[in-house]
Design a protein around this nucleic acid. Sequence first.
DNA 1: TATGAATGAGCCTTCATTCAT
DNA 2: AATGAATGAAGGCTCATTCAT
Lengths: 206, 206, 206, 206
Amino acid sequence: MPLATHSSRRHARAQAPEDKRELILRAAIKLFARRGFFNAQVADVAREAGIAAGTVYLYFKGKDDLLISIFERTMREGMEEGRKVLTGVTDPVEQLRVLARLHLARLGEDRDLAVVFQVELRQSIKFMEHFSSTLLQDYLKTMRNAIAEAQRGGRFRQEVSATFAAKALFGALDEMATNWILSRKRYALAGQADDVVDLFVRGMTQ
Amino acid sequence: MPLATHSSRRHARAQAPEDKRELILRAAIKLFARRGFFNAQVADVAREAGIAAGTVYLYFKGKDDLLISIFERTMREGMEEGRKVLTGVTDPVEQLRVLARLHLARLGEDRDLAVVFQVELRQSIKFMEHFSSTLLQDYLKTMRNAIAEAQRGGRFRQEVSATFAAKALFGALDEMATNWILSRKRYALAGQADDVVDLFVRGMTQ
Amino acid sequence: MPLATHSSRRHARAQAPEDKRELILRAAIKLFARRGFFNAQVADVAREAGIAAGTVYLYFKGKDDLLISIFERTMREGMEEGRKVLTGVTDPVEQLRVLARLHLARLGEDRDLAVVFQVELRQSIKFMEHFSSTLLQDYLKTMRNAIAEAQRGGRFRQEVSATFAAKALFGALDEMATNWILSRKRYALAGQADDVVDLFVRGMTQ
Amino acid sequence: MPLATHSSRRHARAQAPEDKRELILRAAIKLFARRGFFNAQVADVAREAGIAAGTVYLYFKGKDDLLISIFERTMREGMEEGRKVLTGVTDPVEQLRVLARLHLARLGEDRDLAVVFQVELRQSIKFMEHFSSTLLQDYLKTMRNAIAEAQRGGRFRQEVSATFAAKALFGALDEMATNWILSRKRYALAGQADDVVDLFVRGMTQ
DNA sequence: TATGAATGAGCCTTCATTCAT
DNA sequence: AATGAATGAAGGCTCATTCAT
């Protein structure tokens, strides 16, 4: 099979650009989580990724761009997976449950990523404003829409603002994630998704 | 009245040490909130406080100590005021309401302080671990106790862990505060305390 | 005619090596003039020349070599043309005039080249020493010889050192060129050659 | 003499700011001249001045500012001394002679300064434009005025533009300075001032 | 001959902290 | 107690050059 050989040779020559980007991003998540964004040096990230320091700058604009890219890639993937798992789920309450499970499952399966999301990404109001005004907003909107749908269907109380309710639900989930990474106990974060949703749904039910 | 005399002499000579500490802390809150902890320089804080840079080190161990002191002073004052307003409040649900109102009221009346609390204090996992293991724990404990009390009294459902419920309530309140500082709209943060508690109580009620 | 065939084959395959060198050199002149030697990157020069960065190193030793080559090629061409136009000119004063006209005409017809010559080539004493000890010396020698000849012929005063006089003449011409590139006004640089020579000749005449 | 003691103590405490600036500037001239502006590191300059690297930034905005400051200080001092020595000199030709002597004398008495002026300051068109449009312009203007005055007095030919003539004179002087620093021979640069002026005056005389 | 991804040495600048006064 | 000039460690980023293909 000369074709296969040829193909693997090409792989050996250089990893596809996307793989290299991914490699750097994974190294950054690990380093940022364990040393903190400010204490982790770009050179450390490069070393962890097994490349030269300068190479990072072929794939990212600068150190900040690493953090932003981690956020964007993860949120994008999360939203894509969210859309996928929501397919066919028509019950709005079930939709909230699916979202919550996905939210905590993704963070719960990668502690480093969770630390970056719950701690390092909240470095400064500059980052926060950038993040909360874009993809995070999409996530909250999806929640709000499900809540509003449940209100229209008579399942949830009308007198509570859907926007407010979405924030409350998100806040509770977010706190579970933060507590999880700060806790010395090792428990399954995803297991709390249903508890949060149950509490929330009960609070919203007519 | 030697005591009074002594006291007034100190006042005449210069501001009392406590006042100077306070002065620096207030300057730090302002600068940290507006420029971010890392971008605000110690010299800026000193200038804002109207003192020399070196003087900061007569009152604080270093820059980090400013952040820690802001947290500790605010939490201490908050807990003290909490104990005060809780005095005579025996109903556990009412206790939660009082705490929530106080929480959002304090942050809502000082946006700079709120920014420091919601953003700057979450710089790194190092800070987070320090904070969440001390005074913040006290706050959560107070909430958990009220919740457990409500459970014992048959008001709240027993099957929900009080610790879990306290996190959920705290998370919802925390998110309201974060959203408030990031929002361009100017609304009364404290006004959301009751909404959060209502939602929570309903969710916990038998 | 195998030779011709061979030659055209080379042309068909790619540009002849000399053309490629020339291409890179022209790109370098443009970039060095507009961004400065230090700010212009080798990759920029390559892009401007329409080749890959690495290819530059097949034709030049390094970035410095580009600058040196620009100088040497231009001086060589200048000296060649100088010898050509001096052919048949026996009057030493006329020789000076021809040289001066050529000097300013060449710079005046290519502003980028003039900038490189008047500014970028004077980066460091290292370059300066290299340049002034080689081809520039030849140019000054040619001037000095003409001046000495005019002195021997009784046209120019003997008491002035020919070497000194050559420097003065060169300096005046050089300043005209520098002023021209720095001036916002667009005038014909070559037009000043005669004025400089007239002034100089009058100063040297018995 | 306790007063004197007191005074010297104050000197020991800290040099006057102007002295420190001067100290750094002298170190910069030395380093820039010997290693070139780009090869000389700020840390080197600081070490040469006997201070810490950071201290440079208390007195100068950055590395560029060192170069600019050298130029400005030297030109300012030169112009001041020029005004002084021109006092009482009414003959315009004598004025030119005085200026030329001063020009070459100042450079000739400090080779490092001369190197910085003749080589390092001409790094880039950016610097050149800055310099030639300010203090250097003043110098040329002073020359032009003297020339114009000599023309009005009937001493110099009218048909030569005074601006052009000033450039020619400056160019000749400038070239003497450049040649001097590049030459291995050690001769008195100032000694050439009269030769240049003689040549020039003769060239301009009716 | 040509490519261009990767390298990694090199440096300016910032700023928390100190300390002589 | 207060000052503020001085310190010097630390690190993000650039870019000339290389080399496997």
